[in-house]
C-alpha cells in the first residue's frame, strides 16, 4: 500500500514505469527520410544531375501522353528503369501507399467525365466507356509518376542530390538567387533530421517518465500533450544552431566565396546512353500521340 502511494506521488503509473524500464517507444525511429537505398546498379552510378534532369523530362512526357499506346510506352520504360535499380518492387509499391487516396479519388472523379455509350446512370451521374478509359488512364498516369519519382530518391544519396541541385541551379545566380546558401541549408537540414528525431524520442520518454500522457484522449488532448515535447525541442535546436555556426566558423566557413569541392561530378558514358535512350522514348511518345487518336 505504502509503495503505491509513493509511486503515485512521483507521477509513476504502471505504464510510465514500463517506459523507464526499457520498453522503448519506437514511434519516431520508424520514420525514414531521404530513403536512400544503397545498391550497386547502373542507375545508382549515374550522375545526380543527369538523373534529376531526365526524371523531370520523364514526368513532363508522362503528362504529354494522350493515348494508351504512348502511355504504355513510357510506363514500360519506367518499369525497365525501376527493375534496373535492383531495389525490390515492393518498395516502389509502398511509395504508392501515400498517394493511394488521390489515385482512387481522381479515378472515380474521371469515371463520370466522359462521352460515349452510357453504361449506367443515376440522375446526373453517368458512367460511359469514355469515362472508364479516362479513369484508368489517370490512375496509371499518377501511379507511374509517383513510382518513377521514387527512383531518384531511392538511388541518389541526399548529399549527391543537394550537390546536383546546387549545380543545376547555378545559372539562377544571374537572378540573384542564393544558390549556395539554399544548398547548404538543405544539406544541414538533411543532416539534422535524424539527430532531431532522436532528441524528440528522448524528450517524449522523459516527459512520459514524469507522467505525461500522450496516447490517450481525443485529438485535441493529444496535440496539447505535444507542447511539452516541442518547446524543449525548439530551445535545444537553437542551442544546436549556435554550436553548429561556431563549428562552421572554426573551419573557416565564409559563405560560398572561394569554396572548392572534394567531389567533382562527371557526366559519364552511362549518362550519355541514358539520355539517348530517354530521348528515343520521348520521340516515340510524340509519334504515338500523333499517330493514334486521343483518349481524353
Amino acid at each position: 500500500m505504502s509503495n503505491s502511494i509513493i509511486f503515485c506521488d512521483a507521477g509513476l503509473t504502471a505504464e510510465n514505469l514500463r517506459v523507464i524500464i526499457g520498453e522503448k517507444c519506437s514511434l519516431v525511429r520508424d520514420i525514414t527520410l531521404g530513403q536512400y537505398v544503397p545498391e550497386k546498379s547502373l542507375i545508382h552510378r549515374m550522375d545526380a544531375r543527369a538523373k534529376i534532369l531526365l526524371l523531370l523530362m520523364i514526368l513532363v512526357f508522362i503528362f504529354v501522353c494522350r493515348n494508351f499506346i504512348s502511355l504504355v510506352t513510357i510506363s514500360l520504360f519506367s518499369l525497365v528503369i525501376i527493375l534496373m535499380t535492383r531495389i525490390s518492387i515492393v518498395k516502389y509499391l509502398k511509395s504508392l501507399k501515400a498517394v493511394f487516396v488521390i489515385v482512387i479519388f481522381t479515378g472515380i472523379l474521371n469515371l463520370f467525365y466522359g462521352s460515349g455509350d452510357v453504361l449506367w446512370q443515376w440522375q446526373f451521374l453517368k458512367i460511359t466507356w469514355g469515362g472508364i478509359n479516362n479513369a484508368i488512364f489517370t490512375a496509371v498516369r499518377i501511379s507511374v509518376m509517383v513510382m518513377v519519382s521514387s527512383v531518384l530518391t531511392y538511388t541518389t544519396s541526399p548529399t549527391d542530390l543537394t550537390d546536383g541541385l546546387e549545380r543545376i541551379m547555378k545559372p539562377l545566380k544571374i537572378f540573384r538567387v542564393r544558390v549556395h546558401e539554399i544548398a547548404m541549408m538543405m544539406t544541414i537540414a538533411l543532416r539534422f533530421i535524424p539527430v532531431l528525431l532522436e532528441e524528440t524520442d528522448k524528450i517524449m520518454n522523459a516527459q512520459k517518465a514524469r507522467g505525461a500522457d500522450m496516447e490517450n484522449g481525443n485529438i485535441l488532448r493529444r496535440v496539447k500533450a505535444l507542447v511539452p515535447v516541442l518547446i524543449p525541442l525548439l530551445v535545444s535546436s537553437f542551442r544546436r544552431a549556435g554550436d553548429l555556426a561556431m563549428a562552421m566558423e572554426c573551419r573557416c566557413y565564409n559563405g560560398g566565396k572561394g569554396r572548392t569541392r572534394m567531389k567533382i561530378m562527371h557526366f559519364s558514358l552511362t549518362d550519355l546512353f541514358a539520355a539517348i535512350i530517354s530521348f528515343l522514348i520521348f520521340g516515340a511518345v510524340i509519334y504515338f500521340n500523333m499517330a493514334y487518336p486521343d483518349v481524353v
Binding site: 544519396s157 544539406t187 572534394m262
Partner: peptide
C-alpha cells in the same frame, strides 16, 4: 552532433 555539417563522414 552539433559540429558535423555533412551527412557523410568524408564530406
Amino acid at each position: 552532433d552539433n559540429q558535423i555539417v555533412a551527412g557523410i563522414v568524408e564530406e
